[in-house]
Design a protein around this nucleic acid. Structure first.
Lengths: 125, 125
DNA sequence: CAGGATCCGCCAAGATACTG
DNA sequence: CAGTATCTTGGCGGATCCTG
């Protein structure tokens, strides 16, 4: 098995949600896919500066198993794979919004921010 | 020193917030303190079945450094220390609520839950 | 009662090289 | 282009013993 997920038992809803978003890049992947609707592997890599191929594919696979991400494979040469959010992924992203606003406000106060993509800070994420 | 916090730079608000709630028990500590208003060390231990003294004190110290938790020491014998949430802690807890509801709904669907304290599930957390 | 100090296992995550 | 396969490591979290 490739996934590292616990998938329960959980103490509470937050515990369950954290299990699914835990991972250095998962919330960023969620955000990228939400912004662009659908993205190819290489596009995601470029959108997430610093991520390795291994971690990206690993996180994507786990999120697919968790039903957050849809993976569409086009059997052609050269290969093409498109990733997008499922309904669960979209709702999770929405549930993450208040947390993002809290963090943004905190960053503003303690002055520890770094804008990844233009507009990321402005949107409250 | 002692804390493991990155404290930036962050890519986005979620990143900053996750840095502060990351840790196996932090969201549960937040929840416990929010429910009871103020708790002593031993009370927290009993409220978080499975936590070790080391991890509890470590998480509490980090959360204090992060300005989420207030630590009130009573200089007496035997010692007495009371923990409570700061305003930041309260607002973080509120920002976590939607995520908790998302997770609760998910647990209901995949059937991987375990109620920690009576009422925890009923409250949507 | 409320910690402090240590030792250790495990696994997420990084680096590197190779493939259909 | 979109992965796979290994090796390595930092540090989170568990266990155990000790102290003001």
């Amino acid at each position: 098995m490739g996934a590292s997920a616990r998938r329960g038992p959980y103490f509470c809803g937050i515990d369950a949600a954290m299990d699914v978003v835990a991972g250095k890049w998962k919330s960023l992947i969620l955000w990228e896919l939400h912004q662009h609707g659908t993205r190819r592997f290489a596009e995601l890599r470029r959108g997430l500066p610093g991520v390795s191929e291994k971690m990206l594919i690993q996180h994507l696979r786990e999120m697919e198993e968790d039903g957050l991400v849809h993976r569409e494979v086009y059997h052609q040469v050269p290969p093409k794979v498109e990733y997008s959010l499922t309904e669960d992924g979209v709702s999770l992203n929405a549930a993450l919004a208040p947390l993002g606003e809290w963090g943004t406000e905190r960053m503003r106060r303690i002055g520890a921010g770094r804008v990844l993509v233009d507009g990321a800070a402005a949107t409250g994420r």
